[in-house]
């Protein structure tokens, strides 16, 4: 459980090969595919970090857009004063702090309160920022730096690799074990000496921080940010769907949801731009009724069946 086993080494080498392929992608594919790849990398970052928290705890967080917007605004407001990389780190810090505060207020209560709270969080933050901008007579923020598309891509891939590493380490740590126990039975967890509230808050800080960093990294790509761009509520839902579609039972699960859904989303919004909401809705229903454990669950089930077949 805690030592490196042969399967661990195998998983590690596969991951490294996949990472190398991902890194080489910009030299292989064309411009259009690269744009799609940037989106995929971003959603991989967001969905994987989302699943780190929501997978074991079963708390559905819809706060991604709020953290993302926070990060984008950190970049927008600071870009003329501080170096880019420092702002990314700062954004991560702010995201973690905000997640900590939200977590302390809501995570000791049942999951419903948490969902409701996070559902409106992006909208509330957007209203407040709009109000402040109106009060100061500002409309949006121009971001004066600019990167090549491939640079955005590599930054996000690096962040994704970092999250996979963190997720893998958490999975082997006491905190990871504690969260699995909490997910199974919170009462047993408490009586086994686990500070359940603290564990959940600590873990929630990861997606908060990561989403804020992604927002900061991506902000220059927009060039100009205003509340409606930075706090787009769709983002939170897309992340939930991709993570659940892939499955949260494995670290790589969300990735299995990100790739097909990003492509589908691209196709639908290109040909039927008004029907993206319908797509979101149907995806939710498909997840609940047909793929409750996501693609990961489906795969494990098939594998188990094949295993059974061999047994007879």
């Amino acid at each position: 459980m805690m030592r490196m086993k042969s399967t661990d080494y195998k998983a590690l080498s596969v991951s490294i090969v996949l990472l190398l392929i991902a890194i080489c992608l910009p030299w292989i594919v064309g411009d259009f595919a690269l744009t799609l790849a940037v989106n995929m990398a971003m959603f991989t970052v967001l969905a994987t970090s989302w699943a780190l928290f929501s997978g074991p705890t079963h708390y559905i967080s819809l706060a991604t857009a709020a953290f993302f917007g926070l990060g984008a605004y950190t970049m927008g407001l600071g870009v003329d004063h501080l170096p880019f990389w420092l702002l990314v780190i700062l954004a991560g810090l702010f995201g973690a702090i905000m997640a900590g505060i939200i977590g302390l207020a809501t995570l000791r209560l049942s999951g419903v309160y948490f969902v409701i709270f996070t559902l409106g969080l992006a909208e509330m933050t957007r209203q407040i920022i709009t109000y402040i901008q109106n009060a100061t007579g500002q409309k949006g923020i121009l971001i004066s730096i600019w990167f090549e598309e491939s640079t955005f891509y590599w930054m996000l891939v690096a962040l994704a690799a970092l999250i996979f590493l963190v997720g893998w380490l958490i999975g082997r740590s006491r905190l990871g074990f504690a969260l699995r126990i909490i997910g199974d039975d919170e009462e047993v967890a408490r009586h086994s000496g686990i500070n359940t509230a603290l564990s959940k808050v600590l873990l929630f800080m990861i997606p908060g921080s990561v989403a804020a960093m992604s927002g900061a990294i991506i902000a220059p790509r927009y060039g100009y940010i205003e509340p409606l761009i930075a706090f787009t509520p769709m983002l939170s839902f897309q992340v939930v769907i991709m993570a659940l579609l892939g499955g949260t039972g494995r670290l790589w699960g969300p990735l299995a949801g990100v790739i097909p859904f990003s492509i589908l989303w691209e196709l639908i919004s290109a040909s039927f731009p008004n029907q993206t909401t319908l797509l979101l809705g149907l995806s939710f229903l498909i997840i609940v009724y047909l793929l409750p454990q996501g693609f990961v669950g489906l795969l494990l089930k098939i594998r188990a069946k094949i295993g059974d077949g061999r047994g007879y």
């Binding site: 074990f177 699995r180 126990i181 199974d184 047993v188 086994s192 686990i194």
Partner: peptide, 17 residues
């Protein structure tokens, strides 16, 4: 703890207490 093995079920009591 339904998603865990017997071993992990027992370990739950010995890691944090």
């Amino acid at each position: 703890l339904p998603s865990m093995s017997v071993m992990e079920n027992v370990m739950a009591g010995g890691v944090f207490g």
